[in-house]
Design a protein around this nucleic acid. Sequence first.
DNA 1: CGGTATTTTGAGTATCGTCAAGGCCAGTGG
DNA 2: CCACTGGCCTTGACGATACTCAAAATACCG
Lengths: 263, 263
Amino acid sequence: MEERLGERAENGAYNCGLRELRGFDDLPEDLRQELRSICRLRDFSAGQTIAEVGSPPPFSGVVRSGILRMQKSLPDGRQHVVGLLVEGDLFGRVFNGDMHFSLEAATDAEVYTFPRPRFEAILQRSPQLDRLLLLSLLNELDRARDWMIILANPKVRGRLAGFLLLLCTRFRNVDDMVTVANNRLRVKIPLSRPDIAHLLGTRIESVSRGFHALADAGLIEMLRPDLIDLMDLEELAEEAGEPDIGDLAALEMLKLSERRMLD
Amino acid sequence: MEERLGERAENGAYNCGLRELRGFDDLPEDLRQELRSICRLRDFSAGQTIAEVGSPPPFSGVVRSGILRMQKSLPDGRQHVVGLLVEGDLFGRVFNGDMHFSLEAATDAEVYTFPRPRFEAILQRSPQLDRLLLLSLLNELDRARDWMIILANPKVRGRLAGFLLLLCTRFRNVDDMVTVANNRLRVKIPLSRPDIAHLLGTRIESVSRGFHALADAGLIEMLRPDLIDLMDLEELAEEAGEPDIGDLAALEMLKLSERRMLD
DNA sequence: CGGTATTTTGAGTATCGTCAAGGCCAGTGG
DNA sequence: CCACTGGCCTTGACGATACTCAAAATACCG
């Protein structure tokens, strides 16, 4: 029996097809059923705020499509991006926490939401869900540390290179973020220049100059400000001081496999 | 019946007093008993390696005293600090993960260790322990994001200011790291200059200059290279672009409460 | 087509990285 | 007790890089 995903139900909410989400398909059927019963699929349009700092968020959630920005608002009113959430990512502090960060849609996005009390109730008695959450957190922690490594690069060009490589490795199979065209990796950057600048601890002008410097050096090619072809992964990794050689190999594989498909 | 903590047992291992550890005292007695039975207290001296990258660590653990450095080794052989573990912190990737980072003792340290297979077996059937781990991860994730914010500060002085404030707020009640003397906060920095430099994405010379610049501006006072008095929290927070005003207030409270105690 | 927001470029200044030298401290051995 | 040594931190000078402010170019939208 095929379930229909994301279809609007009579009450104005959506039915949820959790099966498609990474990890959730390992959960036992009765648990999925229960989650589905409290789940709502909500649409957010780019720029819309999903959860605010301080106020404990009314729901936990899973991203179905699109990209979400986690950000901290600084006293001067600016926003500081501290992470991205993509398809399959869990969010929403469970238990005794307020959000430390606000959540905004970077692109149009669909999000499965679960009312927090009910979600936590299920969590209380479901080790499997708990485990899923735990693995998700482990994953996010690794990503946060990867960001740290990148941010600690003293030169802006190096941070940009690391940023691009991170986008490719961590968000490889997300939406249309990374594609392959005639043996090149093409990245669609889901952040504006100010966001990139804040994230990498620099200014928009330096971001611009840095990208163009990488382009002049032949490491990348800028089709649009937010659409970049990666021409030389080796050199980029070098520039980034990238410690993780394994991921690089994975990217090469990706290119090759795609090329064979096009042949 | 008082249990004796950290006492060497006949077999050369240590008995473990898990009760004293944050979080563990909420676990049911039988679980604590079981954990105690597989636990070993191990001593590490400053600089000693506790776990290597790649090789899945043979144990999970909890820090009892001292400070541990999480670090990633870069291809050029240098080490890059990505986090600190202090009293009560859990570590050791459970389930399907190799360590992505190596672990070293920054100071002499005592660590409760649990053989991984047995620890995971307990975890499998203990929602409470699972929950504890989950909360610990949530906590670490927040810390990692705080590091990100600090690292994203464009100026070295700002990063140093944020670094000092972070040490005070997150590691407040750890060992002798933060003390209060005649209405000043005094921080003992558990990292060498090279470590600080790597962590903050700069060089040792800039760290030195940055600290001294802060000192000249009257925001701090350097008693020793690794022992610093914080003279003006407001200004430091300003310099750091610190978004978290709440923590600052908490620090002021700490100062005041201590002063009242001295009166 | 005009108007706005975003991105890029340019010029000048501050900051930082780099290399080299000097100072401080602890431990060693005379 | 003192000179010597080595490790770490600091200081200085200089070139590279990045930040700031301002203006121009480009993309975006009605």
